[in-house]
Simulated scan of single mutants.
Amino acid sequence: MPSRRHFLAGLAATSLAPIRGWAAVGSPDYLAAALFPDGSYRLAGLDTGGDILFSLPLPARGHAAAAHPHWAQAVAFARRPGTFAVVIDCTTGTEITRLTAPEGRHFYGHGVFSPDGSRLFTTENDYEAADGVIGVWNTDDYTRMGEFPSGGVGPHDMRLMPDGQTLAIANGGIETHPETGRTKLNLPTMQPRLTYLDVSGTVLEQVELPRALHKNSIRHLAVRRDGLVAFAMQWQGDKAQHPPLLGLHRRGETLRLLSAPEAVQSTLQGYAGSVAFAGDGSTVAITCPRGNALHRFSVADGQLTGVFPLEDVCGLGPGPEGYFFTTGTGIVGELTSGPHISARPDCQWDNHLIPIRKPA
């Protein structure tokens, strides 16, 4: 039998199915979903100057995306509780195929490729069992290879750890069912968990928040090069309470929770949208679109180092000297000592700004 490498090399040598990398589309740095003025939902590739290098149509509103580590391919995921994920050839703008969640499942809007790009992992809801699963897809033809439990309820974001063999899962703890849309069905008993699985599905470690914070849904993740995980949370409890919305964890250690002073924290409405480490890893930040703010913290001591008012800011990614961010008002900006608007294309950016990890 020919090896996968020989098979792909053969495809690349033909004019029918060329395999092209990210340089073929201008070497974009980020992917982001957006709503455009003509009413279309699209997936865009952005550079660090805020320029849109391509924008490709989606069948409905997108949430986040996954970028193939080698090929100029992106998988755009439907917003929960959507059942589609579109695989796009970013060099031609054509749809390669469309993933449909199996019966009894829906996507949560996030996924990640294996380091060699041979597999795609997707966060999903087994809604009849009220349990989370991780779907596994073969990227040769994007057929489903199987699934395994996510280690909790409501797996939302997922990141590959630096070892290339471990998945960090944000099990948000919230039970939902398509028949009731986005209604949260188990708030009194929800149990958010940060779960580490190996890529075969074995649970390696799980950590939970203190009992008093069991309604603080763990939603989005960032991973530093040394394996430190940051997680952003969304509070489902008493609106008079203003708990931390950012946590840090290293495997084998206890959680660290970071928060602004009460007077500032109370303006965030219990909601963090995205989370990222700065390019140098010294600080970590969350976006708070309901509070129209971006909060930055020192990783070393957990102290708040900046509060930056930004209307409807949500997308966030690392930059060489700080962060890049997007807003629902169309801004693409950079944050170093303070925020700087790089571009303002005529669109409304959705929740996330996904870095493209291009080969060295």
Rank of each mutant, 00 (worst) to 15 (best):
P57N: 07
P339C: 03
V313W: 06
S200H: 14
L167E: 05
A276K: 05
G291P: 02
G39C: 05
I286G: 09
P320M: 04
H340V: 05
H249F: 10
Q191N: 12
A33K: 03
P355H: 07
A168S: 12
Q236A: 04
H63V: 01
H214G: 01
V313D: 02
I286M: 09
L221T: 10
I218P: 05
F107L: 11
Y41I: 01
F54W: 12
V313P: 01
V313Q: 03
N186T: 13
L46M: 11
R225D: 15
Y41R: 02
G151I: 01
N351I: 12
R42Q: 15
A60L: 07
E95F: 00
L310V: 12
N171M: 02
D226T: 07
L304W: 11
I354H: 06
P59A: 05
S298P: 00
A72E: 00
A78F: 00
G281T: 09
P81N: 06
F297C: 06
V284C: 08
H6G: 12
G109E: 08
G154K: 02
G281K: 03
D141K: 05
E128H: 15
T97F: 10
P318V: 10
S15E: 10
G109C: 04
T327D: 01
T143P: 00
A285F: 04
A34E: 10
F231W: 03
L245R: 08
G273W: 07
R344C: 01
P289N: 10
L248Y: 08
D226W: 13
H340F: 07
R79A: 03
F7G: 06
A76N: 01
A293C: 10
S27F: 05
S298F: 02
H110T: 02
L258Y: 08
I174R: 10
D350K: 08
P289T: 14
F121T: 05
P28F: 08
L316W: 03
L204T: 10
R357L: 15
A285E: 12
L99R: 11
H177K: 10
H220Y: 15
G21K: 09
G279V: 05
H214D: 10
T176H: 11
G201M: 13
P149D: 14
H295G: 03
F121N: 04
V299A: 11
Y196E: 11
I169Y: 02
H242C: 04
I354S: 00
H156T: 03
L257C: 04
T326G: 01
V153W: 01
V229G: 01
P178V: 08
P261H: 08
W22G: 03
V25C: 15
P244R: 03
F325S: 01
K358S: 14
G146F: 13
I341Y: 03
G49C: 06
G117N: 00
